[in-house]
Computed example of a mutant assay.
Amino acid sequence: MVHHDHLVRSTTHAPASATTGGFAIPTQFRGDQPATMEARYADGTNAGPADWTPFKEFWTHFQPDYAAGTILLKPEFFAEVDDGPVTLTFHFWSRARTTYLITKSGATVTGS
């Protein structure tokens, strides 16, 4: 069995800046849907709630908004994220993966 980490119609993200009250990652889903999200600090340790795992809870910590073209990172996620860079890895049902780097500084979040 061959494992594919990408598709011709792969999902893409755009840079964004907002607050921890509701950070929306601009996303072109291109027909795909996220299955789960991992969050890790720069040193590889798990970031965010339930830090015994890198995987975060769908709908409680993040949720897609297909109509708006975003993936929303919720305040419940940021409540347990330390300041600094966090790498997010989104796993999609197609088996594609995308990464997105956010940096939290107090209540401000930037992403690329």
Results as ranks from 00 to 15, higher is better:
14 A>P: 09
14 A>F: 07
16 A>S: 01
17 S>R: 05
17 S>W: 03
17 S>G: 10
17 S>K: 10
17 S>V: 10
18 A>M: 08
18 A>S: 14
18 A>P: 01
19 T>Q: 14
19 T>K: 08
20 T>D: 02
20 T>Y: 07
20 T>N: 09
21 G>T: 06
21 G>F: 01
21 G>Q: 02
22 G>H: 01
22 G>I: 00
25 I>R: 00
26 P>W: 03
26 P>M: 06
26 P>G: 09
26 P>K: 07
26 P>T: 01
26 P>D: 11
26 P>A: 12
27 T>K: 06
27 T>H: 05
28 Q>P: 05
28 Q>N: 11
29 F>K: 08
29 F>Q: 00
29 F>I: 04
29 F>L: 02
30 R>T: 02
30 R>I: 01
30 R>G: 06
31 G>K: 00
31 G>Y: 07
32 D>K: 03
33 Q>R: 12
33 Q>L: 09
34 P>D: 09
34 P>R: 09
34 P>Y: 02
35 A>C: 12
35 A>Q: 14
36 T>Q: 13
36 T>L: 15
36 T>M: 15
37 M>H: 13
38 E>C: 11
39 A>G: 04
39 A>V: 03
40 R>K: 11
40 R>C: 08
40 R>D: 10
40 R>Q: 11
41 Y>L: 08
41 Y>N: 04
42 A>E: 14
42 A>W: 06
42 A>I: 09
42 A>D: 12
43 D>G: 13
44 G>E: 06
44 G>K: 06
46 N>T: 11
46 N>A: 13
47 A>N: 03
47 A>C: 02
48 G>I: 04
48 G>Y: 00
48 G>S: 04
48 G>H: 08
48 G>A: 10
49 P>A: 04
49 P>T: 05
49 P>R: 04
50 A>M: 13
50 A>F: 15
50 A>D: 15
51 D>H: 10
51 D>V: 09
51 D>G: 11
52 W>H: 11
52 W>T: 14
52 W>I: 09
52 W>Q: 14
53 T>D: 08
54 P>A: 12
54 P>Q: 12
55 F>C: 08
55 F>S: 14
55 F>H: 11
55 F>Y: 15
55 F>M: 14
56 K>N: 08
56 K>S: 01
56 K>R: 09
57 E>H: 14
57 E>Q: 15
58 F>Q: 12
59 W>T: 10
59 W>M: 14
61 H>Q: 15
62 F>A: 00
62 F>Y: 04
63 Q>R: 10
64 P>M: 04
64 P>A: 15
64 P>N: 02
66 Y>N: 13
66 Y>A: 14
67 A>G: 11
68 A>R: 02
68 A>G: 08
68 A>P: 05
68 A>K: 12
68 A>D: 09
69 G>P: 01
70 T>Q: 03
70 T>W: 01
